[in-house]
Design a protein around this nucleic acid. Structure first.
Lengths: 347, 347
DNA sequence: CTGAAAGCGCTAACAC
DNA sequence: GTGTTAGCGCTTTCAG
């Protein structure tokens, strides 16, 4: 049955005093029960819970925050794009935050520039958060803000310092390295790279991994090509790369760009994977169904968010104890049909 | 006992009293300035703003909410999937909320079932929100919650009633109709439909549009095929549909499913669009680069979120006045290469 | 135009 | 185990 209240501006909601009165205890006792504090008899605890239920009592978080100084919520500064990667990360963050017993406030910054971040952080602080997550920002300069809560930089080094700033990676460099190694293992002499915009730390991190893989085998490092994460930019990059017969393998810093790139390659008459192998980045499952199915690396969004949040919550709740070590993140290469040995190896 | 502003040694954040003292006015005057209330001289206003800036003063939202009863934030119950559609809608909602001067709290419900929604709404209410957006939920039963703030159902009819419940569509039926009409206009005798899970209202809404388009021309309505939004489910549906030579046109309730479906069709030897035309739903730009580029309808996320939020904010801020009418949403068909006239029309 | 007093609903610290 | 007493920092009356 539908139960509606919709009482617009009528009798005020029940307060803890109402619950206390109904049970015949003090407000503090009600408070103890609601906060799961010890030193309440099981009997009283049960009766308080029952009374609260009966009255439809709901804790007033504003009052609680004001009195305790803790808001029980965490704010995230996100990128405001609907791409699979950023969206997955946000979903993972929401889950991790909720599992930690906090609420989540979201502010998007379309650009991810230092000023945008400063503004977003400010607005979060004003709304009242106990900690802030800055998710995969663009970092070119210093962000100048006064922050008095712990801040987690997820997938980027801190853009501002402070005693309560923690960092957690998404393991992008290792992932990029695995992707590049896969291509090298297949027999390619070298691997080209289509990067995301280099102003994004996420893009640079992957470049590092690609470079490291090449360097480890003493391979030639082809010039970097830069896209903007969009499939269109991948397509444009693909047209340029298709003209170069030296190109037999490309590691692309995002699935969408990879799909655009493959489009251009095939349009130019270069077969994938027979002539050119392509590896994407992210792990969007839809690309198992394009032609050819895309080999990619899966980003460990859940693990990264969970690990980062563990550090952040630690910094919030035990500000004086040492920050625990970060966990290792899984590296998962999803091999499909867009990669193969180079033409030379097949005679 | 009166507390003297302790801005010497005390690391506590500055309060409005500190600002007031610095300027030499009362706290109420500071409050007026910060809330953009009238009846403050320009001079005082300016000095207050300067002092606030100088002290690095930041309003305490918990205190404000407690005193005023308004939290200045809106909560959204989202689906917790990283698909292009839901993610885009969330981004659009965030923007609309921010533009309205509210903060955004997010709770995901993995399932979108009535019970999940009830839980999510409860948690939002406890966190303190002035309004709630329920975004594209699964609706099979009634949601039983006590809500005392306005609720906007976005892309679904209300799951619970009440005087302060508003609804805004995303225009899915019209979009579905446009997609179906496009196929019919091309000369197809009828159009098959691969729907999303019918427990989702969003899926049912699109089915309606498809049915309406067929009915308007007196065309035969083929049996409905049901997927689960994933490309994999589209692929499975495609294998079944490929076996039926009658199928020349399919309207698919999501781009990902459409891509999976095309994969299966081609694998079975049916060419797209020569033998079978396919239209997707959502408008993810990456699918301009798959083979064949996907014809689709673009969901007007920004317009839908903006319009819905306008209604919600109205319900919050002017609870007694009538709810303004909803705006018409744009219908945008993106014709690419996955649709063509049926084989029969081409001889 | 501006200010003084009185809480908002809860938790903190300490009593009992 | 439980109650009492003070506020948290702001906005709301209602005076001036």
């Amino acid at each position: 049955m539908t139960r509606v209240a919709g009482r617009g501006g009528s009798p005020s909601a029940p307060r803890s005093a109402d619950v206390a009165q109904l049970v015949g205890v003090s407000r503090k006792t009600v408070s103890r029960v609601l906060n799961n504090e010890p030193y309440v008899s099981d009997d009283v605890r049960r009766r308080v819970l029952e009374a609260a239920e009966e009255l439809g009592y709901r804790l007033n978080n504003a009052a609680r925050a004001l009195a305790s100084g803790r808001n029980r919520s965490i704010g995230v500064v996100a990128l405001g794009t609907a791409g699979y990667g950023t969206a997955s990360l946000l979903v993972a963050i929401e889950k991790a935050v909720r599992d930690s017993g906090y609420g989540l406030r979201v502010v998007n910054t379309l650009g991810g520039e230092p000023d945008d971040i400063a503004r977003a952080v400010d607005s979060l602080l004003e709304q009242g958060v106990d900690g802030i997550i800055v998710s995969e920002p663009v970092i070119e300069g210093e962000v100048s803000v006064r922050v008095d809560v712990p801040v987690l930089f997820l997938g980027a080094p801190p853009a501002f310092g402070g005693p309560r700033v923690v960092t957690a990676g998404v393991g992008a460099d290792l992932l990029a390295r695995a992707a590049t190694d896969h291509l090298l293992d297949l027999g390619h002499q070298t691997v080209h790279h289509l990067a995301g915009p280099l102003r994004w730390y996420a893009a640079r991190d992957r470049v590092e991994g690609w470079r490291a893989a090449l360097a480890a085998r003493g391979r030639h490092q082809p010039p970097l090509v830069e896209g903007d994460w969009s499939a269109d930019s991948g397509y444009r990059a693909g047209r340029a790369l298709a003209a170069d017969p030296e190109v037999t393998a490309v590691f692309v810093s995002g699935d969408d760009m990879a799909v655009g790139l493959i489009h251009a390659l095939r349009e130019a008459g270069r077969r994938v994977p027979e002539d050119v192998s392509v590896v994407g980045f992210d792990g969007n499952p839809v690309f198992a169904h394009v032609t050819p199915p895309l080999t990619t690396v899966r980003q460990p969004f859940d693990a990264a968010a969970g690990d980062g949040l563990r550090l952040l919550v630690h910094a919030i709740e035990k500000p004086d104890s040492e920050i625990p070590p970060a966990n290792d993140l899984p590296v998962e290469l999803v091999v499909r049909a867009s990669t193969a040995p180079p033409p030379s190896a097949r005679g």
